[in-house]
Nucleic acid binder design. Structure first.
Length: 452
RNA sequence: GUGGUUGUAGCUCAGUUGGUUAGAGCACUGGAUUGUGGUUCCAGGGGUCGUGGGUUCGAGUCCCAUCUACCACCCCA
């Protein structure tokens, strides 16, 4: 033990208490997914790099964890490559697998590969860790869990509506107040069309996306920097300054964008989704946010992002519609829409707002104190009886001092202790102690079972 | 990947212009209490001062590098 052991940057251990809380989130999310008819799948932690590369943009490629080939991983590398320090070429030669970066791309691969076994529309959920070689920060880890729900093989906007209902249900159950922000990629491309800068769509959306973070002036500055003309920027202005409630925003957008085919379609889609939502009793606020873009460039329709109220931690859930994700794997014409819950961030939000129910951290309900070998034999029978009746119970394994055993129960927050010594064995009446109130009474096993 | 802040006991932190053997609280272990925890009292264990170099007669303290956590950018859950 010369050196303290450690874990890689941006990864974490979870204690029993933390794990219990995390499972509370996973269980809640899962129960909602199931309720809406989604089925679980799992995919491998690693994928072929050919599956992963190029799907998340240039930035995403950099953030992929790559797995070194086994054996002589240098066999495809020439001395010349090394001399030239051709990093990209060498990287491809020594590594052909990578850790998954999200769950959507592996899912697309899954759909294409198993297309003959799947009946569409296919509704699946997937809860697994993903890895990104990002620089860690608060709420930002290199290993974290995503809880994805997607439906592929259906163009209906009812799917978007369903996802919003799922989001509302999950956060209602978790007691987190959220705002669901909505936009449509087609509106963004409509804007680009309108100002005649269609090929700059990405630059424009990336800049607009930062609106609430860096302010209007800085957005303009960034657009200028990207080479947009003053005229174009002036034309964007009305969109950036869009204010009011959802219907006001919609009618403004209609006036401004109605002439562009994409813009028109996007507005129509948004309108339809909102119309469906109108009659539903959602707890979460649903808000059109024309500046919402989201980086992943495979989105083509609805864009959804969820932010927690009262905590600033970035988005805790996000997603959208992607019309042709499976196309890159050779299966065109399959549209999908899905969202991803960031379990780790939800955990941080709930911790900060103290939203975990007390009873989440569960251990045994009863501890049987160990008084020695003979007593332990008798205690085992009682223990078995308790467990047979569904009561989680444990017998202290060593004949340790009473103080130590009581302290153990106290620290593990075990609410009841049963003492079985000589007297108790004779009478078959055991001392049951309530650790919270300190009360204790002599009870038969039947009485104990009834009481607990 | 770029720039900044940080690190002393398991945890939270003191530690003087560089100067003997690095401290406190909490936690832990034992005792007061041989069948009673959470309160109290007493005692005890625990540190290569993140790591590696350097300056100095002398470094927890100053300099450099590196790692970690955090912050901003980039990007994102």
């Amino acid at each position: 033990m010369a050196q303290k052991p450690s874990i890689p940057k941006g990864t974490r251990d979870f204690s029993p208490v933390e794990t219990a809380k995390r499972n509370y989130i996973f269980d809640t999310v899962k129960s909602v997914f199931r309720k809406f008819g989604y089925q679980p799948i799992e995919t491998p932690a690693m994928e072929n790099l050919s599956t992963l590369l190029g799907k998340y943009g240039e930035e995403g490629d950099k953030l992929l964890f790559r797995i070194l080939n086994s054996g002589d991983f240098l066999k495809k590398v020439t001395d010349e490559d090394c001399k030239k320090r051709d990093i990209n070429k060498i990287a491809l030669a020594i590594s052909e697998k990578g850790l998954r970066y999200d769950l959507t791309v592996p899912f697309a691969r899954f759909v294409v590969q198993h297309r003959n076994d799947i009946s569409f529309p296919f509704k699946r959920y997937q809860i697994q860790p993903v890895w990104r070689a990002d620089r860690p920060q608060k709420g930002r880890y290199r290993e974290f869990y995503q809880c994805d729900v997607d439906v592929v093989g259906s163009d209906s906007l009812l799917n978007e509506v369903e996802l919003i209902r799922i989001i509302d249900d999950v956060f209602r159950k978790l007691n987190v107040n959220v705002v669901i922000k909505l936009n449509n990629r087609k509106i963004l491309s409509g804007i680009a069309q309108l100002i005649g800068e269609e090929e700059r769509l990405t630059d424009i959306t990336v800049a607009i996306d930062k609106l609430d973070k860096i302010g209007i002036e800085n957005v303009y500055a960034e657009l200028r920097e990207k080479g947009l003309s003053e005229e174009a920027i002036n034309n964007i202005e009305p969109f950036i300054n869009l204010k009011g409630n959802n219907s006001e925003k919609l009618s403004c957008l209609k006036d401004l964008l109605g002439v562009t085919p994409d813009g028109n379609k996007g507005i129509e889609e948004l309108e339809t989704v909102l119309k469906y939502l109108k009659n539903l009793d959602l707890k979460a606020e649903v808000e059109i946010d024309q500046s919402l873009a989201r980086g992943l460039n495979y989105y083509t329709g609805a864009i959804i992002e969820v932010k927690a109220q009262d905590v600033s931690i970035g988005s805790i859930c996000g997603g959208g519609r992607y019309d042709n994700l499976t196309g890159i794997f050779g299966l065109p014409g399959v549209s999908g829409v899905g969202v991803s819950f960031g379990a780790d961030r939800i955990y941080d939000v709930m911790t900060e707002l103290n939203l975990f129910p007390k009873e989440v951290a569960t251990s045994s309900k009863v501890l049987l104190v160990n008084f020695g070998e003979n007593e332990a034999v008798h205690s085992l029978k009682v223990l078995n009886e308790l467990q047979k009746n569904g009561i989680s119970a444990e017998l202290y394994p060593d004949n340790a001092k009473m103080k130590k055993q009581m302290k153990y129960a106290d620290q593990k927050k075990i609410p009841f202790v049963i003492l079985i010594g000589e007297k108790e064995m004779e009478e078959k009446k055991y001392t049951l102690k309530n650790m919270e109130t300190g009360e204790q009474s002599r009870l038969s096993i039947e009485e104990i079972l009834n009481f607990l």
